[in-house]
Simulated scan of single mutants.
Amino acid sequence: MQGELTTLGIKVAPSTVWEILRQEGLDPAPERASTTWADFLRSQADAMLAADFLETNTLNGQRQYILAVIEHATRCVRVLGTTAYPSASWVIQTIRNLVMDLNDADYRARLLLRDRDGKFPALMDEILAEAGIKTVLTGIRMPRMNSIMERWVQSCRHELLDRCLLWNEHHLRHALREYEHFYNQHRAHQALAQAAPLRTVPDPITDPEQIIDLNVRRRDRLGGVLHEYSHAA
């Protein structure tokens, strides 16, 4: 702006230009034109998936690798599988199954965000591309770029894996299915205004007598590791 005015023979100090912009609520041009990583994620949330591996050990001494994806907009998670040997063929078949599940659910993802873990084979990106899903890689050693997926990994560890004695792969698969159902159908999420990915927030109770005389039932999952509370029928 200062330069354009100068070409017209009008001399204006940079501070004057800054003051005019500030009064009008406008940021400097470079800041208006730039897009932050957070802005990018928010703008693409409705069509973005994020994927990651997490690891755990079972009581039989086997190390297990769990692959999961999460929808950015709804926070709905899909535990794709767990294995002691995350070979390229296993990952590729798991991704093929994911693509078929997305098609069956009529979910049109355009982007999949993941890190640069060597367990993700190059062919995986080609399979996703054929389904119209572009792979977006995070920076090296920058887990915050995949923060929504990393937050689910932390929740899964704190609420399940760190609180269970998992005997073997079969037991782990059962526990992950229970946690996936709990996370999607019941667990309240602050980012969703206390709704769950597949459950809306019920209407608040306004009748004082109804609040005083509540009849609530608790359902335990995995022997009491997870609790679900609901009104008695």
Rank of each mutant, 00 (worst) to 15 (best):
M1S: 11
T6Q: 11
T7A: 10
L8H: 12
A13G: 06
A13R: 15
P14A: 06
Q23N: 15
Q23I: 15
E24Y: 04
P28H: 06
P28Q: 01
P30L: 02
P30Y: 01
S34T: 02
S34K: 14
T35L: 14
T36A: 06
T36R: 12
W37E: 12
D39R: 12
D39S: 07
F40E: 09
Q44F: 00
Q44N: 13
Q44W: 09
A47L: 12
M48D: 01
A50G: 14
D52C: 07
D52L: 02
N57L: 01
T58W: 10
T58E: 05
R63M: 13
Q64L: 15
I66P: 01
L67D: 02
A68V: 04
A73L: 15
A73D: 08
V77T: 13
R78P: 10
P86F: 02
A88Y: 12
S89E: 14
S89C: 03
W90M: 10
W90Y: 13
W90K: 03
N97D: 09
M100W: 05
L102H: 05
L102S: 04
L102P: 01
N103M: 03
R110M: 05
L112T: 06
L112M: 13
L113E: 04
R116K: 11
R116F: 04
K119Q: 03
F120P: 00
F120W: 07
A122Q: 12
M124F: 04
D125C: 05
I127V: 15
L128V: 09
L128D: 04
L128H: 05
E130I: 10
I133K: 06
K134L: 09
V136P: 12
L137I: 11
T138A: 09
I140K: 12
I140V: 13
R141N: 11
R141D: 01
M142L: 07
M142R: 15
R144N: 08
M145R: 13
W152E: 05
W152S: 07
S155R: 12
H158C: 12
H158F: 09
E159S: 05
E159R: 05
L161K: 06
R163C: 11
R163A: 10
C164N: 02
C164Q: 08
C164S: 15
C164E: 13
L165K: 09
N168K: 13
H170P: 03
L172Q: 03
A175C: 14
F182S: 00
H186Q: 10
A188R: 06
A188Y: 03
A193C: 06
Q194S: 14
A195L: 03
L198V: 00
T200I: 07
V201Q: 13
P208L: 00
E209V: 00
D213N: 14
D213V: 00
L214W: 08
L214Q: 13
D220F: 06
L222W: 13
G223E: 04
G224V: 10
V225S: 02
